[in-house]
Computed example of a mutant assay.
Amino acid sequence: MSAEPGAPAGSETHRTRETHGTPDQTGVQYRYHRDLFPALHDWENTERAIVEFTGEEGPDGLLGLDQMGHFGPQGCDAVVRAVVARLGSGRAVDLCELGSGFGGALRYTVDRLAAAGVEVRRSYGVDLVAEHCAVSARISRAQGRTTMTELCASATAVPLPAASLDLVLVTGSMPHFPDPGAVLREAARLLRPDGLLVLTEEVSLTPDGAEPSEAFRAVHPRGVFFTTPLAARTDQLTRAGFADVRREDLTDWAVALLADRLKVVRIFRGSVANIYGGTSADLIRDTLTAAREEYLAGRLLPSLFVARRADGD
C-alpha cells in the first residue's frame, strides 16, 4: 500500500508493507527496545509520571533519555542546524525519518525546524516494528499532530513515491540497519533532485579496520547494532547517488555531551527508575558509558553527515 505525501492521514494511521526478509530483524529490534524501554508501551501512564516529576511536557523532560538515542535532544538540534545551514529558512518541506522508533526525535525535530523558519508540510516516521509505530501514533495523537504519519515498513522499502520528499533524516538509527547501503539507496529514491539527507552516526561508524570492544558489545549486542567502516559509508553514499557529501567529526562534542547526560542519569537515577524501571535506568547508564568509552578510545567515530541527492539520478 502506498501513501501519497499530500493525502490526509491522521497520526493514528499505520501503513504497512512487506519488508522483504526482515521478520528476524523485526523480532530482534522489538525485543531489545521492549526490554530497554518497557514503560513506553504504556505511554499514558509514562507521560503522567514524567509531567509529575519535571513539570514539563514532551521531550525536554526525562523522556529525552530514551526516545532520542545516545545524542538525545542535542543531537536533534545538530540536525536542525545542519538543515537550516543547507536549506535556509522561510521554506516548506516534506520529510521522513528512517528508523523513527517511538517518534520522539521526529516530533522534536519537526518542532525545532518550525521554530527555525522551516515549515514541515508532511512528516513520516518509518519504523520496522509495528509496536513502535503504535506508540508513536498514540503520542502524536495526544499532542494533536495532524501532519505526521507513522509508516510501519522497512527503511529499504518505504511506501512513498519516488522523488516525493525534500528531506530524509536518520537520527541515530544507522546501527540498527543490517544493510545500510540499501537504506541509503532508498533515501535517494525518496528524495527530489537536490533533496537533502542528514544523518547522525552515534554508534555505527568505525575507523577503517577497527572494531568496538567486547565491553561495548555487552550493552550494544551484535544483531541489534551493526557498524560500518568510515570508507565504506562514504562509498555507500556515493553509490546511492549522493553528492556534496560532508562529514562533521563530533568526537569532542559527543564525549562532553555523554558526560553531561550521564550526570543527569546518575543524579536522577531514582526518578528514572520509577518511570522506566531499575533495569532500564541502569542499562541506559551503561549504554551511554560504553559509547563514551569507545569515542575516547577512537574505536567509534561519532559524526554528522549531510549529503545532497545528485541532479538527474
Rank of each mutant, 00 (worst) to 15 (best):
F225A: 11
P207N: 10
T238Y: 03
L190S: 14
A232D: 11
R233E: 04
P207E: 08
I267F: 07
R266G: 05
R261N: 14
G181L: 08
R217T: 00
R185K: 14
F177K: 14
G195H: 08
M174I: 03
F177P: 13
T228V: 14
D179K: 13
D249K: 05
H220I: 00
V224E: 10
A232H: 06
Q236M: 05
Q236E: 07
S213Y: 00
T251I: 02
T227D: 03
R266T: 07
H176V: 11
E214K: 03
L262I: 06
P212Q: 00
A256P: 05
P178T: 10
L237C: 03
F242M: 08
D252S: 04
A218W: 02
M174Q: 06
R269W: 02
P193I: 15
R222H: 07
L250R: 13
L258W: 09
A243L: 04
R189S: 08
L197P: 07
E201H: 08
A256K: 14
F177W: 15
H220Y: 12
T238R: 11
E186H: 09
L205P: 04
I267S: 08
L197Q: 07
A188Y: 12
T206L: 11
P175S: 05
V265H: 05
E211F: 04
R246H: 13
A187H: 02
P207M: 12
G195V: 14
R222V: 07
P175K: 01
R269N: 05
E214C: 02
E202C: 14
T228P: 00
G270P: 10
L262D: 14
T227C: 03
G181E: 15
P221L: 10
L262E: 15
I267L: 11
D260F: 04
T227F: 00
T234K: 02
S204I: 01
D194Q: 15
V255L: 06
V219R: 01
P180R: 15
V203R: 07
F225V: 08
L250Q: 13
D208C: 11
S213N: 01
L250N: 05
R222P: 03
D244R: 12
V255N: 06
R266M: 01
A240G: 13
A218D: 09
H220L: 00
V183M: 01
L190P: 13
D179C: 08
L199G: 11
A243S: 14
H220R: 00
P229G: 12
R189E: 10
D235P: 00
L257Y: 11
P221H: 09
R192L: 13
D252A: 14
P178C: 09
E201T: 04
L196Y: 02
F216E: 06
T238H: 07
L237R: 01
D260M: 08
